[in-house]
Write a protein that binds this DNA or RNA. Structure first.
Lengths: 262, 262
DNA sequence: CACGCTTACTCGTATAGACGAGTGAGCAAG
DNA sequence: CTTGCTCACTCGTCTATACGAGTAAGCGTG
């Protein structure tokens, strides 16, 4: 029976009105914050903590579930509970759609990831016509049906982003935009070739907990929120020509915007 | 013993390999999504679900804890478990720091909230000199000590945002910026009066689960992430003159940015 | 050496029971 | 009528136990 290194974790305060499982979670959280447990390192097993604190197993599990909810640790069946490593983040700059980045052949995602030394991958591409949802229809100016382009982005095998572009059929139908591979510079380059010179983008950002479906497609650990970004592209005539709905694993992204002080 | 209205919730599938508590959570989630339980409405009590499904109470509680983690429901001791109402959101537009909005006397937060019909409030103001953290120091260009302005924003009594502005001492010391009330137009107006004409802002956005301290100051329900925004203000000489670190309750905000297609 | 089995340890799921504490309705005493 | 109590119902916390299933190391057999 391996006993816990003394000093790593303290004792419970029986006089405190703070619940025992919260006290245990507090101590573990503090130990992690102080670096006593490092990234990827294994925490004491449930059995060890049961012995150390003299509580029942469910109480210890309750503590772990708090820390899981905070995204601090993750459990691996048969192995143990580990401090969650912080994945490298992808920075999205506000000039990422500037025309000058659009000349090359490869997509922005590929170029950027290559530069950062990661292995990029685009996945589960689906391109089809469908009925526009209420929100998309409103943003595109009351269109009924749209062309939807769905794809998932992965970095080093890990899914980090799931995006769907919606375009009005009168613009996209029959063009290369309706092909799985939209060609060099992506759909924005094609839109401009079709006479829709892009004027500006509008991005709306929300953060929330993922739905079960999002947990599945992004393989999210519990306690990781998503960033939900909805971008609308406008041409120089003021028409909305594309809506892109993107769900990103929040632990993999930092968004960066530049605002004029006008 | 009040029995559950039949048809509201289905039965368990004993042949499924999906855990019982997950199946129950799935059914409750679906019922909420379909509007069978409305916002603020009470879900069946633990005892009722125990009877309906023929499982133990801990299993039902386990289901509830999943939904709580997703931010869908919240429990009230002695009353029941309720569908979480979606609070009204505050939209932050990317022109919110435009010079034209700075002429008025009141702060942007107050003006905007009044217009939206909510009751705004600013709270727990603290203004003091302190040692700059590593990150702030790097952003401000290696300054040691800074003036820190801390405040909390509330809408209709609910805390929604906690912000700290950091300014280099050589700019802020002895000016009205170091006063609790910075005067009409806020500290940006004062900075310009002091000869630091603002050129642009840079905003970095992350989303994550809150720390226990953030849960406390923002009175966050479980399952609500925070948006962490770090804004740096640059003057026309390219100097960083302010860093503003903001933590927002994610269920209360939508951020909106306008990007040129340059 | 390679394969498969056992074994010990890990977390996952579920049951049953106990006591505590907040809430609100109803009732009885003043 | 008002106050204060009781009681039923709610969720919160904790214990004890059981079995299942994934993991990894050790060991024996072929």
């Amino acid at each position: 029976m391996p006993s816990l290194p003394s000093g790593l974790l303290g004792d419970l305060d029986p006089t405190s009105d703070r619940a025992v499982f919260r006290q245990i979670a507090d101590q573990l959280r503090e130990a992690i914050d102080r670096g006593r447990f490092k990234e990827g390192e294994k925490l004491p097993s449930e059995a060890e903590l049961v012995e150390h604190y003299g509580v029942s197993r469910m109480t210890v599990r309750n503590s772990f579930s708090i820390l899981q909810g905070e995204g601090l640790v993750h459990a691996e069946h048969g192995k143990g509970v580990f401090v969650r490593p912080r994945p490298p983040v992808r920075r999205l700059a506000s000039d990422r759609f500037a025309r000058r980045h659009r000349e090359q052949g490869k997509s922005a995602f590929i170029v950027e990831a290559d530069a950062a030394g990661s292995h990029p991958q685009v996945d589960s591409l689906e391109v089809k016509e469908e009925k526009a949802g209420q929100d998309v229809s409103a943003r595109l100016g009351s269109v009924r049906r749209v062309l939807a382009r769905r794809r998932r982005y992965l970095l080093d095998g890990r899914p980090v982003e799931f995006a769907t572009s919606y375009l009005p059929l009168d613009i996209a139908r029959g063009t290369q935009i309706a092909e799985p591979n939209p060609g060099p510079g992506g759909i924005y380059a094609r839109l401009e070739e079709l006479g829709h010179r892009l004027d500006h983008f509008e991005e709306e950002i929300r953060a929330r907990m993922p739905s079960p479906a999002e947990v599945k497609t992004l393989r999210l650990a519990s306690g990781v929120p998503v960033i939900h970004l909805i971008r609308t592209a406008y041409d120089t005539e003021g028409r909305a020509v594309e809506v892109c709905d993107t769900v990103m694993a929040a632990d993999a992204y930092v968004l960066s915007y530049q605002l004029p002080a006008t």
